[in-house]
Amino acid sequence: MDTQFGDLDTCNSLPSTNISPTEATLGRHLGRRLVQIGVTDVFSVPGDFNLTLLDHLVAEPGLNLIGCCNELNAGYAADGYARSRGVGACVVTFTVGGLSVLNAIAGAYSENLPLICIVGGPNSNDYGTSRILHHTIGLPDFSQELRCFQTVTCFQAVVNNLDDAHELIDTAISTCIKESKPVYISIGCNLPAIPHPTFSREPVPFSISPKYEFQMQYGSIGWSVGATLGYAQAVPNKRVIACIGDGSFQVTAQDVSTMLRCGQKTIIFLINNGGYTIEVEIHDGPYNVIKNWNYTGLVDAIHNGEGKCWTAKVRCEEELVEAIETITGEKKDCLCFIEVIVHKDDTSKELLEWGSRVSAANGRPPNPQ
């Protein structure tokens, strides 16, 4: 499917519709825009600066709010969602949330993924004052978060008044899709519940093409859990299979709970080889060995009898075959977690070659001055 873009002139020329004042708020307007471009699930972490915005996003028909365990995972989930749907979105709170999600946004930027990062910002009256707010670094300058996002997004919209909110939001979304890069939208916390005449206009027509399904360029450890959550949420009629290393899983394991809460039927193969094998093949050392977890026990604890979940620990090919038969048979309607215990040196020749090349590139001596 070809990607088509509406522009602001087209949007502004559309007639107003019979949207009630309660539906013509800034928050509902943003929600309608997301639904229009195919985003039906938004990954979020609540914070006091975004709570009113979340209220209005929840109220938007067709938009499902997925609460994540932390902002980094919310960003990774939006990344995975974008790889399936063609665009993804996350909502966090100002600075403490924004800086936490930043690494995921940087990964999406490097992978050319359209991702809309929405931040609940300070009260619009506080900009330009000497007031020091919580969730900041203790300075009256609120631009720290914006400056950080400027390097990893293709457009930044700081919405502090209603008159240009419509234009800023539309520009951000259209730029995100046209350039296939993340964008940043900050919404003042006192604005989402307020209506404005421009918010009753029809959304700009968009269509999106699905993109990549794995992260290679950025290579952020821990990406896979959140991305699996987002990808599976984007394709509810399919069963996602994820192969996740033990080191990566330890970074972002919490959001297996969100997978269960959403009723996902993902199959996760946890590769337990005792450490960061990919780093070992580049440069070995004691820092590449991690504490072993009882991974199936952890997932069972997260499951806690709520939702459908099945776990198994396998140590040989026969046990793996048996587990696969189970997860594709009687447990096909469950989230299935298979811990595959392998030797630390059991790796592919491609990884060995890649590690050797990276090691050689990293180890080049300085050029003569």
Rank of each mutant, 00 (worst) to 15 (best):
D345Q: 11
R357T: 13
E145M: 04
N160S: 09
N362I: 02
I327R: 10
G62V: 09
A301T: 15
T136L: 01
I177G: 10
C176D: 01
A234H: 03
R147M: 05
K332F: 02
Y184E: 03
Q4D: 03
D48H: 09
W310N: 08
H56I: 08
A165D: 07
H303W: 15
D345G: 07
Q264D: 13
P114H: 08
N70Y: 00
T93L: 05
T252W: 00
Y127W: 12
I271D: 09
G98Q: 09
A108V: 06
I37C: 12
P21A: 01
V35I: 07
E71T: 06
I271K: 07
K178N: 03
A106N: 09
L351P: 10
S143V: 00
S224A: 14
P122S: 03
D126Q: 13
S124N: 07
E319W: 01
F337V: 07
S248I: 05
D164I: 04
D141E: 12
V159Y: 04
G47F: 04
L320I: 06
A301K: 11
P366H: 13
R28W: 00
D346H: 10
R83D: 05
V92N: 06
N292P: 11
D255W: 01
E330G: 08
A227M: 01
F94I: 03
I341Y: 14
V119D: 06
P140K: 01
G307E: 05
G97I: 00
K178D: 02
A59L: 02
N103G: 07
N272W: 10
I268N: 15
L54K: 06
P236Y: 02
L63E: 13
G305L: 06
K178R: 08
P15I: 00
P203V: 00
I267P: 09
I282M: 11
S186N: 14
W354I: 09
G128F: 00
L162Q: 12
N237E: 09
K308A: 06
P21T: 01
N73A: 11
D346L: 14
I324W: 07
V119S: 07
P122G: 08
N123T: 09
A253G: 06
E71M: 00
N73V: 13
I271T: 10
L229S: 10
T3F: 05
A157V: 05
A77N: 11
E145G: 03
E213I: 10
T3W: 05
Q144H: 07
V225L: 06
